[in-house]
Design a protein around this nucleic acid. Structure first.
Length: 592
RNA sequence: GGUCCGGUAGCUCAGUUGGAUAGAGCAUCAGCCUUCUAAGCUGAGGGUCAUUGGUUCGAAUCCAAUCCGGAUCACCA
């Protein structure tokens, strides 16, 4: 149990004992004490004033007195300033925490709770390479999966690949038209970029054709539908659905190239999936559900035989679930896939990491599942995240302002190389060690940058300034870790098991107070599905440690007792940093 | 137009179950490497928390209205 929990509990008990009524932890608020006041945690008295009809100071005095008298193992002193009861945490308690956990690499993580959660993320289209927005999605999904694992869940990481549809046929057609048999191998191009190039070529050809038709006198709206390219693409989709061998073959071949490209990127950034769903397999799902829904009168059929659901009673619109030609729409397969996932895993929660432009869609999906009485309806959770924009505005593929994932990854790695070389601290590293270090730092900077912001917020990336390596960044935290490791290497075998008693200096205590919060922070991040909680925390811990480091000598402490204490504080800090960073999908170097 | 999200320092962001003088980082300025890694530390300046009104002991946080920006409301996915 954390100190905040102890404080809550002991305050509830004390108040109940003192005032002979029952209280809960919602009757008062606990904050961390502001640095300008004496103390570590603060109980705010004001909310109790009304029910007790006493002054804040009067309540605070009695409560403070009672707490240090009855819970001396936790609290050693108190003071009251303007209705705020500031409590000082016992040094002995913090040292006990330190003693118990300094060498525990699982500190803060929970035991398995036997429950399952699925996190679906990445979910790319196979006609374009990944961009910066996908990276935000992927890092978020990965991190949330790690956080939930640390919270005791069994997590299934899944991905739905959008591998069929008209947009895929566009790149296929363009390849037939322009490639002359070229392949990623023959052009030495990464597969996803290779295919993406033909998607671009398609659009160019299409636009040219439209312009030609318009020039020839056809109205634009009509021209856009009448081009040979678009008609040919539509035919290709029909051929695909009919399973026409040469189309299937081309489709498989080109998707294969894309997967090869994606896999390389996934491998570089260190992510994977436990279960991959392909839309080509799932796009027919949900049809029988539509039929059942019709029988249950949840859906209704219009005269043209299209099938709808009326959501106006829920403040939404009417939504089509099956076209008049009997084919299913996007949402229909989603309903089917949602049920399929549940049948396969019976998970507690099914998390979809999808951009906030699909909030409406996800709301409709959940609502329809609920109305159909499906068992998985309640567990659908849309982890919606904001777009990554540039200082110049949105990323637009048409204007060529999309930040390509592979490009930015490479840029980050080479920037980290440049910084590392300038600093010249690792000249004895081998070629392989250097490469690994550049990658660790470059990816660390990028992941931290994308994860430190609240997921639901739109965030701004400035391509001109690139991503920083100083301050509130991944490398800052990594550096703190490397510094500690350096000390620990030099003092190997000098640490002894017993922890000497004695009081803590201010800087020592500050580090311990922050480190002690780690389990609560994991819990909070899990509840909120929010990695930025971890990023902010881990930075705060590193910053607090760095102040301590600058003020006190660790390996050459004043006394042997202080040295032992500080070595253990350092080890605990290093372990928490490493653990916290891993929840963000970031690794830490032993030296940098 | 309906619905939803956002607006906090020059920039990027924390802080919102209502609590003390609104916090970090970057940038700017001034210090700190003869001692464990200066990718660091210490300090300074920088705010109409979009605006107005309300709720109350107390509002960046809750409510209402307004302004600004964005998303969404397809027989597209």
């Amino acid at each position: 149990m954390s100190i905040v929990n102890h404080l809550q509990q002991s305050t509830v008990e004390s108040l109940s004992a003192l005032y002979h009524q029952s209280f809960t932890d919602r009757d008062f608020q606990i904050n961390q004490t502001k640095p300008e006041f004496e103390g570590d945690y603060t109980v705010v008295m004001f909310s109790l004033v009304k029910s007790l009809k006493l002054s804040p100071d009067a309540i605070g005095n009695r409560l403070g007195e009672h707490l240090i008298k009855n819970y001396p193992q936790f609290f050693t002193a108190y003071n009251i300033i303007k209705g705020f009861l500031n409590l000082t945490i016992s040094d002995a308690y913090l040292q006990e925490i330190l003693h118990k956990n300094h060498n525990d690499i699982c500190y803060g993580k929970k035991q398995m709770n036997g429950k399952k959660v699925m996190v679906e993320y990445a979910s790319p289209n196979t006609n374009k390479p990944l961009h910066l927005g996908h990276l935000r999605n992927i890092f978020l999904g990965w991190s949330v999966a790690e956080i939930l694992t640390a919270s005791g869940y069994e997590v299934i990481k899944s991905c739905i690949v959008n591998d069929r549809g008209i947009h895929i046929c566009k790149s296929m057609l363009a390849w037939e038209m322009f490639a002359d048999g070229a392949t990623p191998q023959s052009t030495n191009t990464k597969g996803d970029h290779f295919v993406g190039g033909y998607y671009v070529k398609f659009n160019e050809a299409y636009k040219r054709e439209v312009e030609d038709l318009v020039e020839a006198g056809m109205p634009r709206a009509e021209a856009e539908k009448e081009t040979w390219t678009i008609k040919r693409t539509q035919q290709m989709l029909l051929d695909w659905e009919a399973g026409k061998p040469e189309v299937m073959e081309l489709w498989k071949k080109m998707n294969g190239w894309v997967y090869e490209g994606f896999d390389r990127t996934y491998k570089t950034i260190g992510v994977n999936f436990d279960r991959i769903y392909y839309e080509s397999n799932t796009y027919l799902l949900g049809k029988d559900i539509v039929k059942q829904g019709l029988d249950k009168k949840v859906f209704y059929q219009k005269e043209d035989s299209s099938i709808w659901i009326d959501l106006t009673g829920d403040g939404l619109d009417e939504k089509i679930v099956q076209r008049s030609d009997g084919t299913s729409v996007y949402i229909t397969q989603d309903i089917g896939l949602a049920l399929l996932k549940y049948e396969q895993y019976q998970m507690e929660q099914s998390i979809y990491v999808i951009g906030n432009e699909q909030i409406y869609h996800m709301k409709v999906l959940k609502l329809i599942c609920q109305k159909l009485g499906m068992p998985n309806a309640g567990n659908i959770y849309h982890l919606s995240y904001g777009m990554v924009e540039l200082t110049s505005g949105k990323m637009k593929s048409r204007e060529g302002t999309v930040v390509d994932a592979d490009d930015i990854i490479e840029e980050m790695i080479s920037t980290s190389q440049q910084h590392t070389e300038e600093l010249g601290k690792v000249k004895d590293f081998t070629e392989d060690e250097l490469k690994a270090l550049y990658k660790t730092i470059g990816l660390g900077a990028m992941k931290f940058y994308l994860l430190r912001v609240d997921p639901k917020k739109t965030m701004v990336f400035n391509p001109a300034e690139s991503i920083d390596f100083h301050g509130f960044t991944g490398p800052f935290v990594q550096y703190t870790y490397a510094r500690i490791q350096s000390i620990l290497r030099k003092t190997e075998n000098e640490m002894v098991a017993e922890l000497p008693a004695g009081s803590l200096l201010k800087a020592e205590k500050e580090v311990m107070v922050v480190a002690e919060q780690y389990p609560v922070i994991i819990e909070q991040a899990a509840i909120e599905h929010n990695p930025s909680v971890i990023a902010n925390y881990v930075f705060n811990l590193a910053r607090t440690f760095n102040s301590f480091y600058a003020e006190h000598s660790i390996a050459n402490a004043e006394t042997e007792a202080k040295k032992q204490l500080r070595l253990k504080i350092s080890l605990l800090t290093a372990n928490v940093i490493k653990s916290g960073m891993s929840l963000l999908g970031i690794s830490v170097p032993e030296r940098m």
